[in-house]
Amino acid sequence: MEPVAVFPLAEVLVPHEPIAADQVVSGAPTSGAATVTALDGLGVEIGVWEMSAGTATDVEADEAFVLLAGRAVIELEDGAKFEIKPGDLVRLAAGTKTVWHVSEPLRKVYVIKA
């Protein structure tokens, strides 16, 4: 591995696919992810994820991310809501059931155990 690696995240292309119909609550959201790098020996993946405007359900993995662009509200099963905006660092616990209400297309850099 190189001693220093720079990843121009603004240039990472993320191919989108429609979100599964059984997860869509409203709209016609799409999403996609692109792995950027991994931390060898730790089983950690770092990448870019995007979601278009719309509302969809998900079951989360153990993850931390920084929102680079867009706006959304993450809603939990108990009704708790978290507004997220660019620059926010968000931590998600594995198994958490969420509803993503995306008002402006999201782009985040994520760190996840692969």
Rank of each mutant, 00 (worst) to 15 (best):
I112S: 05
A5K: 15
E75Y: 08
A21S: 15
E45D: 14
L42F: 15
H101G: 01
G54E: 05
G79A: 07
V111S: 08
K85W: 10
G43S: 07
R91D: 08
T35L: 15
P15R: 12
K113D: 14
V24D: 01
V90W: 02
A80H: 13
A53H: 05
G27I: 04
E75N: 07
D58M: 08
G47H: 04
V90P: 02
L67W: 08
E60Y: 15
I74R: 01
L92N: 05
K81E: 14
D88I: 04
E77T: 13
V66H: 05
F65M: 02
F65K: 00
P29Y: 02
I19V: 13
R71K: 14
A56V: 04
E11S: 11
S52D: 08
I74N: 02
G47Q: 00
L42S: 15
D62K: 11
I74C: 04
L76W: 15
A72H: 02
E45N: 13
S31F: 00
G95T: 07
E104I: 11
P29H: 01
L76T: 14
W49Y: 12
Y110V: 03
I74D: 04
G41T: 08
A72S: 11
A80W: 12
E77W: 10
K85A: 14
A21C: 10
L39R: 15
T57F: 01
V102H: 03
V66K: 01
V48K: 01
V73L: 00
G41I: 06
R71H: 14
G27W: 01
T55E: 10
P18L: 04
D22V: 11
G87N: 07
A38T: 15
A56E: 00
E75A: 15
Q23N: 13
T96C: 05
L68Y: 02
D58N: 11
E83L: 10
T57Y: 00
V99F: 05
L68P: 00
W100M: 03
A94G: 13
V109D: 02
E2P: 13
A34M: 14
G47K: 03
